[in-house]
């Protein structure tokens, strides 16, 4: 279908199936084989897909909240693009979780109808950004970690996870470069931007350790899941490279946040996100829009 100009494309609404905005998408894994790899427990695989799927879903939502609030139009587009990539990864992973669980739940049901305590995202993803520097610090940490994770995941024994990993690597490489670029620009900028970027890096540090803790689910899925502890060296090397170029200090070891997002123990911030994310779906059960 082609249009002579953008306005024509926007006003062409004769076919409702053309765009979907909220629920009722067709299965993003339509036609991808759904079998589980031999010897893998479906409940474990589902739990793992929720862990790394919820990370993407929740951070995507936080990034979407920057739309209309970014400092420049170009950054607004960048943030929205990154959010869209993560939402795409979340859709694939939640769909895979539903299949592995085998209880008939699809991506919509998992995204819109779970309680906060059933979300498995790391705490880093649900925080509120105090300013653009905090957003960049969080994105730098998250995308550096996730890029390493997806890269290792591309060798997973589960062909679906391996495909999601290989595809995600291409996307998250751009996310990391974007965050690293801004970290350097702000860190190696004016006295004020340097000071604020350092404060942002310091603020995100207590949330690092959770990223690298081996969960029971990770341990039971050796060869299928990626052991996050194995990603620390690569992560540290990239962070050291970026912070050095940005003339920023690597924070000293700090006391880690005690709550465990991977076990469903979240902050109040997640409730706020879910109120926004789930409100419409819960108010109109079965509704599609």
């Amino acid at each position: 279908m082609s249009f002579d100009d953008a306005y024509q494309a926007l006003t062409d609404h004769d076919d409702d199936a053309r765009w979907a905005y909220g629920t009722g998408f067709s299965d993003p894994l339509a036609g991808v084989p759904t079998a589980l790899p031999e010897g893998v427990d479906g409940a474990d695989l589902a739990a793992y897909c929720l862990m790394i799927g919820d990370d993407a879903l929740i951070l995507s939502h936080r990034l979407q909240q920057w739309v209309t609030r970014a400092p420049e139009l170009e950054d607004e587009m960048a943030i929205a693009n990154i959010a869209l990539d993560l939402l795409g990864q979340a859709r694939l992973l939640l769909t895979r979780a539903g299949e592995a669980e085998g209880a008939g739940r699809d991506e919509d049901e998992l995204a819109y109808l779970r309680e906060p305590g059933d979300f498995r995202n790391v705490l880093l993803t649900e925080r509120v950004d105090a300013d653009f520097g905090h957003l960049i610090a969080r994105l730098l940490v998250f995308s550096t970690w996730r890029l390493a994770l997806l890269d290792h995941l591309s060798a997973s024994r589960d062909p679906v996870l391996a495909a999601i990993g290989a595809k995600g690597v291409k996307e998250v490489s751009y996310h990391r470069d974007y965050a690293a670029g801004w970290t350097v620009r702000l860190g190696d900028g004016t006295d004020l931007s340097h000071q604020r970027m350092q404060a942002a890096i310091d603020a995100v540090w207590p949330f690092l350790d959770e990223l690298f803790e081996t969960h029971d689910v990770d341990a039971r899925l050796a060869g299928v899941a990626v052991d996050p502890a194995s990603l620390r060296a690569e992560f540290d090397a990239v962070l050291a490279q970026v912070l050095s170029a940005a003339t920023l200090e690597m924070p000293k070891a700090v006391e880690a946040a005690t709550s465990k997002g991977r076990d469903g123990a979240h902050g109040e911030e997640l409730n706020e996100i879910l109120a926004e994310l789930q409100g419409l779906a819960r108010a109109t059960p079965g509704g599609v829009w």
Binding site: M1, D15, A17, R18, W19, A20, F25, S26, P28, L29, A30, G31, V32, L92, P159, V160, A162, A163, I164, A166, K167, K170
Partner: peptide, 28 residues
């Protein structure tokens, strides 16, 4: 979603009423 629908419409219009569209993720 649109691509899938456009493919099905084109095939239906050409007389292929039994068509379905499958997604693959690998190779990326």
């Amino acid at each position: 979603e649109t691509i899938r629908t456009d493919l099905l419409h084109a095939l239906h219009d050409a007389g292929y009423s039994q068509a379905h569209v499958r997604t693959i993720l690998a190779p990326a």
